[in-house]
Design a protein around this nucleic acid. Sequence first.
RNA 1: GCGAGAGUGGCGGAAUAGGCAGACGCGCAAGAUUUAGGAUCUUGUGGGGAACCGUGAGGGUUCGAGUCCCUCCUCUCGCACCA
Length: 885
Amino acid sequence: MSLSGVRTYARLRAMNAKYDPQTIEARWQAHWADNGTFNVVDDPNRPKYYCLEMFPYPSGRIHMGHVRNYTIGDVLARFHRMRGFNVLHPMGWDAFGLPAENTAIEKGIHPAKWTKDNITSMRGQLKRIGLSYDWTREIATCDPSYYRWNQWIFLKMYERGLAYKKRSPVNWCESCETVLANEQVIDNRCWRCESEVFPKELDQWFFKITAYAEELLSSCDTLTGWPQRVLVMQRHWIGKSEGVEVDFRVIDGPPELQSIRIFTTRPDTIFGATFMSVAPESPVVDLLIKGKNEEQAVRDFVSRVSRQDRTTRTDAGAEKEGLFTGCYAKNPVTGDAIPIWVANFVLYEYGTGAIMAVPAHDQRDFEFARQYKLSIRLVIQNPSGTLDPENLDAAYTEENGFLVNSDQFSGLSAKDGKARIAQWIEEKQHGTQTIHYRLRDWGVSRQRYWGTPIPIIICPTCGLVPVPEHALPVILPSDVPFTGKGGSPLKDIADFAHTTCPGCGNQATRESDTMDTFVDSSWYFLRYTSPHHTDLPVEPAASRRWMAVDQYIGGIEHAVLHLLYARFFTKVLRDLGLTTVSEPFENLLTQGMVCKETYHCPKHGFVLPTDVTDTQQCTHCDSAVVVGRIEKMSKSKKNVVDPEELITRYGVDTARLFSLFAAPPEKDLEWRDDGVEGAARFLNRVWRLVAEYAETIKTVDRNPTQDSADAMHHTSRDLRREVHHRIRKVTQDIEREFQFNTAISAIMELVNVLYTFGFPITDEIKNDEKTLQIMKESLDALVMLLSPFAPHIAEEMWDALGNDSHVLHSSWPQYDPALLQEALLTIIVQVNGKTRGKVEDIPPDWTEEQIVDKVREEPKMSSWLQGKTTHKVIYVEKRLVNFVV
RNA sequence: GCGAGAGUGGCGGAAUAGGCAGACGCGCAAGAUUUAGGAUCUUGUGGGGAACCGUGAGGGUUCGAGUCCCUCCUCUCGCACCA
């Protein structure tokens, strides 16, 4: 359907003198929609370019952050299209999630209706931004044709042991009688009723992302197109650490507990292990204390600690607390009996849930030992030997010392000691070398309605039974009461919950939890390659053609979870044979936030800019308003700019241009109304320039012939050089670093240049074919360079300049390197490195001597050089001469 | 505390590979046009009378440093008892 040259609208007879964005934008948007201009078809003759912006949650309205994000993507998509790429640029909706359900509870609107209406209005808003999406590929994750594949993937993972069920705590609000998502817990209190939130154990589903931990970590090295800081966060989240697991024999424990296994990354310090600490949740605690005097005290301690929420407990500043269990273990290397403690700072989920405590060389153990008067044994001495074992004021945690008090290992460097002791532990069968990850398996169960039903049937006889593939999708029932009470809403829907077991045919119940919405967004980029495929989530051939995403663009807030899950799913789907790539996103651009000044009234809090007088007073109370910090746009701070109002006022080309010009994409953007005015002014300026010449040059052939180039007088040559210089600059800025702000400044420079070189349209000029050709070349180039940023005005001007087809089907302009050569050089003159002047109009073929002599003779240089001995002359080719005197 | 990034005019921000600091825009000022305003166009706009001084502070390398090296300060963002 994408046909160049087809016009749904007659060509303009002449450009209006006045730039009217509303009319122009409506016209071109309708044209693009009517002609399916951006619908992508396979084309083996062109290289592919898959450009993707993170799809939005359909909250109802587009905000400035979306505008910025999608405009960046659109510039890249349009640029690459003009560069000859076959561009895939899709859009869709991350349509499941909590806000829809909250609206249902509060206002009684069904999540499906609310979501659908929001999508409709947001789609309209996006179309109004002129984004070059292939809307035939639109997906919504709440659509059964999408989420059935979530279920399909879930079952495949279940088959492979990558999906499993285990008991795990959720946030439970007693008064609302409901499970809360992490974001609904604020300071350990329920967001709705503010009562305290407690952990509650439920059987829940997990994805075994840890099975891919090593690959997720190691392939970070292949992601050369990702920002360093995102990779740092990913690596840290995975948190690989290499160490040793060691068994410590329990001396006076019960027969079921022969030993306790610990994990340490510092086997070189094992001779300094003077006690052990166990996590309060660890099942060994029960065994250790049974029948001991300490039993009751420890039980009280454990129940108190385990009621604390994780964030306060794992805060580094939190007080270290513990209790002796009454049991001792044997340090396997020293043979000493060391006490076993329960300590709040030991995490059950990490490592083995128990540690050997080396107070001399671990700061936490040190503080703990000091607090409870436990013995401290120095086993690593610093290189200068100044540590006094009797008088440590902190743990010595450096790894550049040498071993002491460590029998046959004493004297070794810590580094060697680490390896040798680890080896020795293995030989003596006290333990094994192991790798641990901080990364935990991904809990995907949500006790929510508005999500993908988990396709599992719970049968009293057969246990967990997967829904057979042919029975997919398990449709989310629509007739559900939204009370905000209880656990999973689906549990109480008889039609849904009651079913028969596919195995034995007896009565069974369906799993009533739904999936985390991160599941939806973990593979949507694959679905876009074949969005209507009905046999599989992804058509393997389509995925082979389009994957990986060449450029992914979105907010830094997704640096860890979404991107990690997407990487994980890609690897799983690769192993299922659905894609050949191991990494979904070749290049990642994380754009900054959109910020704006805030106004704060002492009585009314944050106030709107319209509530502030010229004299900085609040219109409600006359108090002096404080111009606050520049902060991320948010309703609560009353510093939002509504894209729709902005577009109505200035047109979307202006909005796009400003959001790209005000800051480089990865940095925060400070929204300024007068900056928007500037962008609008610029587009008007371009419009007037083109309007002035359009009529005269629209019949002129663009490319100056060699003949005309030879005959060119100097000003024309200079003009062409200026134009080609800007073509290069804009191209490089977009291509290399996404420097859209500097690319736009170069276009502004070009406009300034064209105004400077501009000439009145006289009869003489009208007959000067060569000059007109150069003007035509210049204006065409200007319009093409501008088109990815401000596509509507560019199309309109392209048309007015008499070009066939559309600017978006034109080829991106090429610069001619020969034209970039300066006709005459300007040489900077320095004396002792300080710039003292410049000499202009030097022919480019002059030798170093000629130039230096010429510079020396300059009258204005004499005052700097007279009466001084020149020690040295430094000449930088074609740029600079520096006299060292 | 650890890790990453950043400090440049009144403001947003530019400065290949160490070579004219402040591109481009905003704002401001003057002028032109206009009955006036707006819009537009032109010119100017780092500081200082000047010589000169200027890229967070101090030192270093270099003929020459916003850029490279060392020390420090400030801010932003991540992570934060992970054994």
